[in-house]
Design a protein around this nucleic acid. Sequence first.
DNA 1: TTATTAATACTCAGATCGAGTAGAACGGAG
DNA 2: CTCCGTTCTACTCGATCTGAGTATTAATAA
Lengths: 297, 297
Amino acid sequence: MTGNLAVRLNAVIVSVSDERPRVMTLPDARALPAGDLETDRDPTLELALRRLVQEQAGIQVGYVEQLYTFGDQSRSPTGRTISIAYLALVDAGLAPAGGEAAWVDCYDLFPWEDWRDGRPRIIEESIVDALEEWVGDSALRRERVDITFGLSGTPWDGARVLDRYELLYEIGLVAEKETDSGRPAIRKLGEAMLLDHRRMVATGLARLRGKLSYRPVVFELLPETFTLSQLQRVAEALAGVRLHKPNFRRLVERGGLVEGTGIAEQRTGGRPAELFRFRREVLRERPRPGLGLPSAR
Amino acid sequence: MTGNLAVRLNAVIVSVSDERPRVMTLPDARALPAGDLETDRDPTLELALRRLVQEQAGIQVGYVEQLYTFGDQSRSPTGRTISIAYLALVDAGLAPAGGEAAWVDCYDLFPWEDWRDGRPRIIEESIVDALEEWVGDSALRRERVDITFGLSGTPWDGARVLDRYELLYEIGLVAEKETDSGRPAIRKLGEAMLLDHRRMVATGLARLRGKLSYRPVVFELLPETFTLSQLQRVAEALAGVRLHKPNFRRLVERGGLVEGTGIAEQRTGGRPAELFRFRREVLRERPRPGLGLPSAR
DNA sequence: TTATTAATACTCAGATCGAGTAGAACGGAG
DNA sequence: CTCCGTTCTACTCGATCTGAGTATTAATAA
């Protein structure tokens, strides 16, 4: 058998609110917005994605980028499907959390990814031992585990969100493994999702964290104007790491990523902050403008 | 109409020889290795790609990564097809240039991308004027042109290979435009390829240039051991830029990317060079090891 | 021997980065 | 009205990194 297959589109729609990255799901909180590519209505894949998001989530997305195409046999029980996943970013203010959709906290899906209050407990409590057991005497596995989870002195790489999810899946620490393989999972870390939707979210978060440092994507998640603290909190939420405030200011101001508006934001407690806006001209000045994040401790 | 479509796989197989990045094509030098996904034989997309490359090009590829999925209506005249493009890297020494396949110089496809001997003539001679005319009074077009082609003082960004090809396509400076739209292209810069295969190569080269600075991908294109000059020449060929030799040495040696073997390579002319090998341990030591190229950080 | 060529080694100033400290402007409590 | 906690904002300083240039070494060719 060859050739004709069902082609689906999936949307990983991300926003940040209350200092948490969130992904949009259907009301059940388990499935991403998804739909079939309609050959006669959708001239391009991206337009198909936008239509689908409009229909299912009722929102108009701005930034859209193709993430990855999934097509492994194992991922779907009922016949083979090709799923093209897209990443979309929306400002939390614009996004309706109505009955049509729900927002799921990404760190409920991947509790081991949020290092803002130090190394997440769950790693020591529920992950390390299982990883060590899986490693055994294999040098190959040792290297893989060290690199993906930052063990044995290897630094933690925030961008390896996908690698970590896939490793946990392989070892059987996430619930989806059980569904897919039939065999029971050892543990069920994080909230599970339908099919390989959690894998898609992991792919999206990984892409986002990677791009943060060389493309001004954060601004897609913020309103027109914002304070530098707001900007920093959104960046921290995505990166899952705390940043040094004065240095962050220096980076974005002197780096020409933002410009002050002169208007002050009246805040709760403390000195009023100036409102800034994204400085589009930076795209012309520097080849890869972004928030060159530090390597997390 | 919805759902079932033809799904194809395309391979962008890259190697570097004679200081030129090359891409493997079928003997006609116009088409990439491609084939249908065979649902019952290929458990994963990546395995399908490997099988296909084995069958059509007769080589076993090492490094493989998914590039992009193309599915626009316009790209195929005969019914809609989804094409999943993969990037593969092979050491030039291993790759057979037999009758089954040909190697095409990437800079024959994209002559404006090779800045090793300064700014390519073709830009001033055949591109700038057409770009300017297209810009007209549009500020939006002005910005896009400046960023993609490094005009008006904006620095050239080597990684924007795809953006440049797509802009040239839009304006009608490449031959494929004519084929696709029916209307004649203004110019036909670079060697054309079948369908959107040149776009796929552009995607691959862009990805490769991007990754060069934070992943040790160069070593996939080199033999086990190599001199630092060889390494530098391969890096330069891919990046399309000349690098400062002493600084390059410092980067890779002190950065821990390579280790000396103690063996000296007898060369033609000049002092013998030491042979080095890739130092795998660097993956554990630093989060994003690569050749931090100039203006890309 | 000497010139040529390419590999390797060193130097130095400016930019950047991580970390820390100090002052400024608000609201609220006493 | 003053003090205090809070948050925004402004400097400082040393270590490291980067870009660029220069010098030395070890081979071959004339």
